[in-house]
Design a protein around this nucleic acid. Structure first.
Lengths: 156, 156
DNA sequence: TATGAAAGAACCTGGCC
DNA sequence: GGCCAGGTTCTTTCATA
């Protein structure tokens, strides 16, 4: 039930409580109470507009693997890359590389400049980048999460 | 001006037009007109709730490189991986691999099952996966895009 | 072409059952 | 969880620069 409400809000965060209620079979106030609770609980962290980066001139993305010095802490990486608005995602990972960055920029030159600067960080040994040729899937965060049981070829 | 409005909506998609207007120095109706136009234009594609996958039991993520047969088309990959709700992102990329998938799952076993099935797709030659150890950055899509000039260490 | 003001309709919110 | 009432917000229309 809460998952249905979340799914509805992921689909359209500006939907009316009445609309959501109609969709999940609940009254508007009941929906509001559940949404309020979901926000307090932390399941819903906020509401955000979905923007098309292309429409704003951000036409290029890249993924960059980071190879760091032995004693680099994840928090060091986090602090460093968080300073770049172009870094829209970052995570430490298993495998040869220590971290994987997701970068959005206006063009390839822009990507190059960002990577250059990140590569110059003290703890970075080397980088390995891949430019995105075409995006195939870009789920709004939670669209799948909200409905883990529906249509999954890999059930729980 | 439009960028300021977008930034405000990325921050809080449920903000009232009056609040946004106060923030950018415009009346509520002026803000609404601009937002309507931004939606028609395609700069804003919708409004979505931000969810914490962890709070819903999706505690594990992975990135999977896909190595495909020579004649595989991007659309083939797109069609195949779009069937998996666990695949929250996918793109064809430069470099050795043909595509990079971003997967969210409930645990490592779940990740394993998904990769197994994707690896069984006809066009997939092999895969190379990295489990995410800790997420460092997870920008709401557009948070940087909306303000490309502010605080970027790598100006235009 | 874009803005601000105003009015009626729709919606949210808290209290109560 | 549903229902109701008061306050707020949205949406449209109109006049203006």
């Amino acid at each position: 039930m809460d998952r249905d409400i979340i799914a509805a809000l992921v689909e359209d965060a500006r939907a009316t409580y009445a609309e959501i209620g109609h969709q999940v079979g609940l009254s508007a106030s009941a929906v509001k109470r559940r949404v309020d609770r979901l926000r307090v609980t932390g399941a819903i962290t906020g509401f955000s507009a979905r923007v098309a980066p292309q429409a704003l001139g951000w036409t290029t993305e890249a993924y960059v693997e980071l190879f760091c010095q032995g004693k680099t802490k994840p928090s060091d990486i986090a602090l460093a890359v968080a300073r770049y608005p172009e870094v829209v995602g970052a995570a430490t990972i298993t495998g040869e590389a220590d971290a994987l960055l997701h970068i959005r920029a206006t063009d390839v030159r822009h990507v190059e400049r960002v990577i250059e600067r990140i590569a110059a960080e003290a703890f970075v040994v080397r980088t390995k980048s891949s430019i995105v040729l075409s995006r195939l899937v870009d789920s709004p965060p939670g669209s799948a999460v909200a409905e883990p049981r529906n249509g999954s070829p890999v059930p729980g």
